[in-house]
Design a binder for these strands. Structure first.
Lengths: 343, 343
DNA sequence: GTCGTCAGTGAGAGCGCTCCCACCCGAGGG
DNA sequence: CCCTCGGGTGGGAGCGCTCTCACTGACGAC
């Protein structure tokens, strides 16, 4: 029996296309790559021939000579638990994929949650196996992006890196403006003692959202009080603990801005446990607009980030760098307050 | 100044490794590929040399001759909105990535939400650009997996395909057992009129969870009543609507199994709106154990799937097929009831 | 006329790797 | 003693593509 033996039946090559179009391989290649100096006749013939026989260029052969892999890594540098509870990254991944695919490149999904894996990836990238990297969720002052850039692999980060290295390229949502907007919602409803539960201060996000809170208070002539600022860790339980501490230290708190929705949900729990009502006794504003935000009682007022756009913009920036352009090193995307009933 | 010009400074080739080890390219290649018929001396020398100069094999060159791309696609065949709200796929992606990476292959993340994109991917795969496909969230009787297999691209699905094509290879959680277990929880607490809100019946998941419900009732000698079975669509609002209908048609309902947590959350809303208490008047069990499940009031009793394992197992199956083995075509992973307070 | 010039083309040399084949031994059988 | 035999090795072809370079002929400038 003559089955379809994949190893035996080879896909058509450029040679075949060229022969069918009555031109040389070089010309066929030029057409397929979109080079300009080809006559219209030759162009048409090649396109037709390629279409007729269902030709797909062999990426491996192309890569071998161009030294381009035509692929880009979506590198997640995060321990799993923290990352994967949240649809956040998935939206970003989708945004990036759409943009990358539109340019005919491949998106490689890679996880490097340990230092060893990170090292291995560096080696891999150094071998020229990816043209660029979208680096997700960098922590502290990890030098990975610098290392990659040094190896000649353009890298784009999500989120402002802590080290204010101007050579680093990143896309972020406007966390400062978001923190301020959230705080302003609370000011506008007449709150007098506005507390905040911050994100981790070893991340740009955490710092920036707090900075927004401080700035908004200052703008209306109020000073931020130490005892109204509780450190959190972006988790529900962390939010509950922080809120309990705030309520104990400052029983007159009548509003709180939590730097993430999960912490806001935790805070709401603590507020209820203390016998206070939301928003009448204590108003709450979160950040992120995760899916749970609309399911809480009362539904959570929060700040929405354009997460898909974040991924898309990162990819776009990277593509421009791969094309040899020198696009802006930092892009900050606007956020938007989603008004619900908790404030 | 002599900068590091990436185009100019080429990574070391096998040639260099071979020279340094004092053997031929062929032998060096044998060692690096793990072939057996090489002397220990040669082996050591090559390994040492490769390590010394930080050699990474050029994938493109290798692919060109082996006609293997050493990459596998994680293909998401779903319209975005439905898919990306849920951490489900992210966990699966992570599981798959871990397994694939351990074999030294690449995981390509691809979205094909339209028929055109799906067609394009088929063409791409036909060109030999991926060795295999992990196909996520297939709907109805889409013939994509069959088409891929016919092209010689091994494909593994998540979830039982509707068409009972025995050649199709899939991994699924035990939705029948899960549906039954959920129903048994309700039976055990003495519920008399147990309703169910089903998933879409054009998907295996939807069918199977309903089948589990029916089976559990039958096993204790009860008949499933038409009027206690409400069709749902896996969304919160769908759950609310279905529950309202159930409560209207059968006011004596005292328990409901919703085939997804989101529908369960919707159902809880409807139950509350009708003035009934959970679980005293109506007990609720969901399915999936999404993050929100523990945040509802009362926390939702549900059925947890081993999602990460699902992805891992899919990848594992695919890898075995790529190795020329003939592993089982279907694998069903056990699920587990998570007891909380809604039932 | 003769000379560039220049758009359009094809021949041919690789890219770095794998794999086929020929070869070289030393051990064992006739 | 020759002759297999088989583990171990290297030479060399070639995977499908791109890219350099040399060439053509048409065309305007001198």
């Amino acid at each position: 029996m003559v089955g379809i033996d994949r190893a035996a039946v080879r896909p058509p090559t450029l040679e075949v296309v060229a022969a069918r179009a009555g031109v040389s391989r070089a010309t066929a290649s030029r057409v397929l790559r979109g080079a300009s100096n080809v006559s219209q006749e030759a162009r048409d013939a090649v396109v037709q021939a390629a279409h007729d026989i269902g030709y797909t260029p062999n990426r491996a052969a192309r890569s071998l000579v161009t030294r381009r892999s035509d692929s880009v890594a979506f590198l997640v540098a995060e321990s799993e638990d923290r990352l994967f509870g949240d649809p956040y990254f998935l939206s970003m991944l989708r945004g990036a994929q759409i943009e990358i695919a539109a340019s005919g490149l491949q998106l490689l999904f890679v996880i490097a949650s340990t230092a060893a894996e990170s090292e291995q990836f560096k080696h891999y990238a150094a071998g020229g196996h990816v043209d660029g990297v979208l680096l997700i969720s960098l922590h502290g002052d990890d030098q990975l992006p610098q290392a990659l850039e040094r190896l000649g692999v353009p890298t784009v980060l999500n989120g402002r890196p802590l080290s204010d290295d101007p050579s680093l390229c990143y896309v972020d949502s406007d966390n400062v403006a978001g923190g301020a907007a959230a705080t302003e919602v609370l000011i506008a409803r007449g709150a007098r003692h506005i507390a905040t539960i911050t994100g981790p201060q070893d991340m740009g996000v955490g710092q920036d959202r707090l900075a927004g809170y401080v700035a908004a208070l200052r703008r209306v002539g109020r000073a931020p009080f130490e005892r109204l600022i509780a450190p959190g860790d972006f988790t529900v339980d962390g939010g509950t603990r922080a809120m309990h501490r705030l309520l104990t230290a400052s029983p007159d708190v009548d509003a709180v801005f939590a730097a993430s929705d999960l912490m806001a949900i935790g805070a709401m729990r603590a507020i209820e446990e203390s016998g206070r009502r939301i928003p009448d006794d204590v108003a709450v504003v979160g950040f992120d607009d995760v899916r749970e935000a609309s399911l809480t009682a009362p539904p959570l007022t929060t700040v929405r980030q354009p997460i898909g756009d974040l991924g898309r913009t990162m990819a776009h920036l990277l593509l421009r760098r791969l094309d040899g352009e020198d696009p802006p090193r930092a892009m900050v995307l606007p956020v938007e307050v989603v008004h619900r009933e908790s404030a």
